[in-house]
Design a protein around this nucleic acid. Structure first.
Length: 464
RNA sequence: GGUCCCAUCGUCUAGUGGUAAGGACAUUGGCCUCUCACGUCAAAAACACGGGUUCGAAUCCCGUUGGGAUCACCA
């Protein structure tokens, strides 16, 4: 049978790390099995669903490279399907109308919670067996009062729930819209989903859903509840732990492959391997190597992975990725070739694209100030003469031959009997305004002879 | 609080009855060096606890403790 998985976000916010990972697992599993990956938008809550959220979720999925084969399907547009299913349940007396007011139930619920009891609908309307077309009503599922419901989970194993723990859940709200547990089941059946891979937090919902499958006479899909991602304080990951949405990471200069690689390794493993290409993941991914316990999000490891991919991605790819960030920060125009050279001298020193943009500022603007302490330390009285000498020598340089460039420095250092450190730092200050930068020779080469000479002249004027 | 899930270095994890408990991130130190990085070498660092089962348990069972999830006319 064809493997069909789905990702079913509700458009009530950004795509966050946890959601991205379940999307990724679903996507990988379908790809691994030559199956289909379905995208479904769970927007039955019209109040909280927004177009804005939908847009960023779709963008994030695309950015991560998680393409879907079918959909997006919108639950808000599928009420006919739900209605038909609901009628079936009502006709078979498996669901009933409930006229209890929201306020009273809410009151009872809060009371139970404060008393430390499990709040449950008391079943007031369960056996009333009346129908008031004019009164507002919800439709509830007639949950079996006795017996057990078993959930066979691919990760957690067999989990048994006592039906007496479950109450009569609402299938349709009084405003006519349908609720999650109901539509999720109908849709998963209708879309022929074979594997439901989702967050751990849904495990407690699963027996209710299984009961619905049974009520309809449908067979259940395979369930696979993936452990959650926790923040450093071991609480469920949320905004207060800092950046949690995929779009945040894009803005901060992370590469999609780094996110994918990080996310997949949180909970899943393949022996000692840490780095995976996408095709490797598709080939190797399986459900049986997903761990059972929740994992703490480790931003440092993500950063490391990002620096790995920055170091190992092609220059042209990185140019493409960094372009929007660059445009945002410096006035153009930008030449591809120039950008690529800059990336190549920063790729081993930066962990994000944004960091490259920041550290490479002197390639786009002339330094407006100099590190005062460093000026005192390296631009000592004798240096002016030496720098002028360097300017003369540089003017005879062809601008390309790096060994010749190194030789220019070497000769000066020998003749003047100074340390290379001192010369290099003085020049670095002139070119960048700082004492930290990529290697001085490569910096000179990329910046270009004219600008280098100009900036050295500038700093000579500055010290005078 | 009820129910459910979980438990190997600080963190992510390998491990499926017999290992010197392995790798990675982070940390610390050395080397490399024009600064910063990269790289490289090394170090420190874990089986939550208590009972069983077994010739033998990180691995199996039970309990304790700890952590998490969930208990909506949200999904």
């Amino acid at each position: 049978m064809e493997v069909r998985t789905r990702f079913a976000p509700s458009p009530t916010g950004h795509l966050h790390l946890g959601g991205a990972r379940t999307a990724l697992f679903n996507w990988l599993y379908s790809r691994h099995n030559d199956g289909k990956f379905v995208l479904r938008i769970e927007d039955t809550d019209s109040e909280r669903s927004t177009q804005e959220s939908l847009k960023t979720i779709l963008e994030s999925l695309k950015w991560l490279g998680l393409s879907w084969d079918e959909g997006p399907f919108f639950q808000s547009q599928r009420s006919a399907v739900y209605k038909a299913h609901l009628e079936k349940l009502i006709n078979e007396r498996k669901a009933y109308f409930c006229y209890c007011s929201h306020e009273i139930i809410e009151k009872k619920r809060k009371k139970a919670l404060t008393e430390g009891k499990t709040p449950k609908y008391d079943g007031h309307c369960r056996d009333l067996d009346v129908f008031h077309p004019d009164k507002p009503a919800v439709v509830r599922f007639r949950t079996p009062r006795e017996g057990f419901t078993r959930v066979d989970d691919l990760i957690k194993g067999e989990v048994i729930f006592n039906n007496s723990e479950l109450d009569d859940m609402i299938l349709r709200r009084s405003n006519g819209t349908f609720t999650y547990n109901f539509v999720a089941v109908v849709d998963d059946v209708d879309m022929r989903i074979t594997h439901v891979i989702r967050g751990d937090d849904h495990l407690n919902n699963t027996p209710r859903q299984v009961l619905l499958y049974n009520a309809f006479g449908y067979t259940t899909p395979a369930f696979c509840h993936v452990p959650l991602i926790l923040g450093q304080d071991k609480n469920r990951l949320s905004k207060r732990h800092g950046a949690v949405s995929i779009s945040n990471y894009k803005e901060m200069g992370y590469l999609p492959q780094a996110l994918v690689n990080y996310l997949v390794r949180l909970a899943w493993s393949y022996g000692d391997q840490e780095i995976f290409t996408l095709s490797e993941l598709i080939e190797k991914f399986d459900l049986s190597h997903i761990g059972k316990s929740a994992g703490v999000f480790n931003p440092e490891k993500l950063l490391w992975l990002n620096s790995y991919y920055i170091e190992n991605s092609s220059g042209s790819y990185l140019v493409e990725q960094i372009f929007p960030i660059l445009k945002n920060k410096y006035p153009g125009p930008f030449q591809k070739e120039y950008i690529e050279k800059i990336i190549n001298i920063f790729r081993q020193r930066c962990k994000t694209l944004v960091e490259i943009c920041e550290k490479a500022d002197f390639f786009f603007t002339t330094p407006s100030s100099y590190d005062i302490k460093a000026v005192e330390k390296f631009l000592t009285p004798g240096m002016e003469k030496i720098l002028n000498n360097l300017i003369i020598k540089l003017s005879h340089w062809d601008g390309k031959d790096s060994s010749m460039l190194e030789n220019i420095f070497k000769v000066i250092v020998e003749n003047e009997n100074i340390k290379l450190l001192k010369l290099a730092q003085a020049v670095r200050l002139a070119l960048t305004g700082r004492t930290v930068s990529p290697g001085i020779y490569e910096t000179i080469e990329v910046l270009g002879k004219e600008k280098v000479i100009e900036r050295i002249k500038r700093i000579i004027e500055y010290i005078n």
